[in-house]
Amino acid sequence: MLEDALIPLSITLKVAVLSTFLVAVFGILISYALARRDFRGKWLADILVTLPLVLPPTVTGYLLVVLLGKNGAIGSFLFETTGWTLLFTWHAAVIAAFVVSLPLMVKTTASAISAVDRELEYAAYTLGHSELETMLFVTLPLAKKGILAGIVLSFARAVGEFGATLMVAGNIPGKTNTMSLSIYTAFQSGNDALANILVITLVVVSLLSMALAARFVDRWSV
């Protein structure tokens, strides 16, 4: 019984940690571009990134299936070149979690970056630093609070992800059955004992990770 809880937990953590890492890296780059650069189609990029926040997760999931499936634009290319299918693997779960939590990261981080005084960046330029160096050592450290908040929100969103994951990764025992999917399955099949254990485990793990994150944010945002 305990093993039935531990496997979904490890899948959930694996998916959430990896997707949060990707969200942090790409989210920061996208946020910087949106907050500080002018480029054509910026409004479109902004809308595309934000869209999963507005759409129901099942719709996001459906669109991902269309894109990543064997006949989809990205999926067919991947299959032809590498023979690799994404759908119904835990990688697809990572992608689903990434797409739904990216807007949370970008919205908080972009507004934190916009709030950094531009004069400070200009000052860094006049002191001989390139835009990249200035971003790394001036802008991002000053936007730290917003970035950390974005990461925490993204992790929470990834742990709780259900709809899109079900669409693209399925609910394959031992492979893609994350905590939220397993809870649903256990509840549906009348296995209340397992459902209880899963729920308690998820609540405890969530509380612990939030407490850890809060301490981390406190220490780093002084």
Partner: peptide, 17 residues
Amino acid sequence: QPQYRRPGYVFQNYALF
């Protein structure tokens, strides 16, 4: 680019990091 001009620039609001 400003990083190749490297002027000493003192901003009105000081712009200290």
